[in-house]
C-alpha cells in the first residue's frame, strides 16, 4: 500500500522514507525545470523560497489552459527528465530547504549526497502519465516568473491530491537507480556472452 504524504513535511518524516517506497502526495508544491534551476542558483529567490521550503519541487513543464474566469488548469503534467538539473539541484536543496524532488530518471551523486546531508528524497513519478497526474493537480494557486520563462519553464504553485510516486533516492544514500543499473549491467553482459541463437546470415554461404 502506498504511504500517504502531506505537505509541508518535516526532516524526520523524510528520513523515514526508504528506496522502493510507494507514496501518494497531497498538499502544496511547486514546479521548476531547466530555466528555473538556472535562475535559482544565480540569485536567492524569496518567492520561490516561500513556495518550496519543506515542500517538494516537481520537475515538470505542464500544458496549461486558462478558462473564461482566468483560472489556470493543468491539462497534461507528467515529469520531465531530472538529470538535466544535476549541476544545480544540490545547491537548490541546500538554499531553499526542499524536502523532496519529483521527476523521472533519478539524479546523480552530488544530488544524492545533498539529499543525505540536508534531509531530502527523490520521488520518481511515472513519465508519460500526463493526464492522470494533471488530474491530481486539484488547484493551481499561482505562477511565478511566467513572463520571462514561458509556460513550461515557469514555477507553478500547485495543490495536489494523492499524487503517485516511488522513492528512488532516499536520505540515507540509497539509490534504486544505482542498484538496478548494476544488476541490469550484469544481466546484459551475460546475455552478450551467451551469443546469438539465430543462424548468422553470411554472403559466403549463398
Amino acid at each position: 500500500m502506498p504511504k500517504k504524504i502531506e505537505l509541508p513535511i518535516t526532516e524526520s518524516a523524510i528520513r523515514e522514507l526508504r528506496i522502493g517506497d510507494e507514496v501518494e502526495i497531497s498538499g502544496l508544491m511547486v514546479t521548476g525545470r531547466d530555466a528555473a534551476h538556472k535562475h535559482l542558483v544565480k540569485t536567492f529567490d524569496e518567492t520561490f523560497h516561500e513556495l518550496a521550503k519543506d515542500r517538494f519541487l516537481y520537475h515538470c513543464g505542464p500544458v496549461v489552459q486558462r478558462d473564461g474566469s482566468g483560472e489556470w488548469r493543468f491539462v497534461a503534467a507528467g515529469p520531465t527528465t531530472s538529470i538535466r538539473e544535476e549541476p544545480y539541484e544540490a545547491e537548490v536543496i541546500e538554499r531553499y530547504g526542499i524536502r523532496g524532488v519529483i521527476g523521472k530518471g533519478g539524479m546523480g551523486k552530488r544530488t544524492l549526497d545533498a539529499m543525505q546531508k540536508y534531509g531530502c528524497v527523490y520521488l520518481h513519478a511515472i513519465g508519460g502519465l500526463a493526464v492522470v497526474l494533471a488530474q491530481c493537480v486539484v488547484k493551481v494557486h499561482g505562477v511565478h516568473m511566467l513572463d520571462p520563462l514561458g509556460v513550461p519553464e515557469a514555477m507553478w504553485s500547485i495543490e495536489v491530491k494523492d499524487f503517485p510516486a516511488v522513492v528512488t533516492m532516499d536520505a540515507h544514500g540509497g539509490s534504486l537507480h544505482e542498484t538496478i543499473f548494476a544488476s541490469s549491467r550484469e544481466a546484459a553482459l551475460r546475455l552478450m556472452e551467451k551469443g546469438i541463437e539465430a543462424p548468422p546470415r553470411s554472403a559466403a554461404a549463398k
Binding site: C60, V63, A76, G127, L129, V131
Partner: peptide
C-alpha cells in the same frame, strides 16, 4: 496507472504525455 492514463486521455481528448 499507465493504462488508466491512456483511457483518461482518450476521454478528455488531452495529450497522453505533456511532451508531445
Amino acid at each position: 496507472r499507465m493504462i488508466q492514463n491512456v483511457e483518461a486521455a482518450r476521454e478528455a481528448s488531452a495529450p497522453i504525455c505533456q511532451d508531445t
